[in-house]
């Protein structure tokens, strides 16, 4: 009963918003150029899906490249920072401080350095999404339960064994928190990159449609981006479950 309520109520609310949008816009005489009803957006998706799919490809490729790079870089550098207390004290405060600035504004620098195209959009996406992975890795790996570490020492575990069977499993939830933020940040970076420095991709379609006042196409491309974002988040959440079950099942080879 509680489950049903937890699913039915949000869906009902979503449906109510859609119905209000579909009929309310016409009733309030909002011109369809400003706010086309959902049915018109769906029709545009059906009519224009070749164009939309064609522009989904560069965005999706950019995502795979940037998310993979940011995950590996963030994890490796984060793990390296946990190796030495001094190194961490020297570098980590800058990273935390840097996280608080509107980093997205560096986009024009990447255009100057790398030109207009996939290379600069991917670099911007890596730049934005790498920090959350690094911070997640550092806070996860340094947050191991001290008594577990003492146990490892008294069992004379090697540093690698301690890392593999204790530190890493403890850190995984933090690392995946970072990865989840990174999934959203990397698609955000790609979209902004495509706004300011690309001639392809869904972000480019959004900006192009807005300059023509084609709100239906704009919303259709935004819908594609939203679905993509949610799918990627779901993928990372699924990977987390997989990784947790694998690591925890084998965590103590007795």
């Amino acid at each position: 009963m509680k489950m049903m309520r937890g699913i039915a109520l949000p869906l009902a609310f979503f449906a109510a918003v859609m119905v209000a949008w579909q009929y309310g816009a016409g009733w309030a005489h909002i011109p369809p150029q400003l706010l086309p009803p959902p049915s018109a957006v769906l029709r545009t998706i059906a009519d224009m899906h070749p164009l939309l799919l064609q522009h989904t490809l560069p965005t999706a490729l950019g995502f795979v490249a940037s998310f993979a790079l940011a995950s590996v870089l963030g994890f490796v550098l984060g793990a390296a920072l946990t190796a030495s207390w001094q190194l961490r004290q020297a570098i980590y405060p800058h990273i935390v401080l840097f996280q608080l600035t509107p980093k997205i504004a560096v986009a024009p620098l990447f255009i100057i350095w790398l030109g207009v195209g996939l290379l600069s959009t991917v670099t911007l996406a890596v730049f934005l999404s790498f920090f959350p992975v690094l911070i997640g890795t550092v806070s996860g790996l340094t947050g191991t339960d001290p008594s577990s570490l003492r146990l490892c020492r008294s069992l004379t575990a090697t540093p690698w064994q301690t890392f593999r069977y204790v530190r890493l499993p403890y850190a995984l939830p933090h690392i995946f928190d970072g990865l989840k933020i990174a999934a959203t940040m990397s698609i955000t970076g790609l979209i902004l990159g495509e706004f300011v420095a690309a001639q392809a991709g869904l972000g480019y379609v959004v900006l192009f449609a807005s300059s023509l006042g084609e709100t239906r196409l704009l919303l259709a491309a935004v819908a594609f981006l939203c679905l993509m974002g949610l799918a990627l988040y779901g993928l990372v959440a699924g990977l987390q479950r997989l990784a947790m079950s694998v690591l925890h099942e084998q965590s103590l080879p007795l």
């Binding site: 937890g6 949000p10 955000t188 807005s210 993509m228 949610l230 988040y233």
Partner: peptide
């Protein structure tokens, strides 16, 4: 119960894509 799960989902979508819509 009706609104909160929807907010959580909106939080996950790349909201930056809406910027040009505000210009329109």
């Amino acid at each position: 119960d009706a609104v909160h799960p929807n907010l959580v989902i909106v939080q996950l979508i790349p909201k930056i894509a809406f910027a040009p819509l505000f210009v329109v």
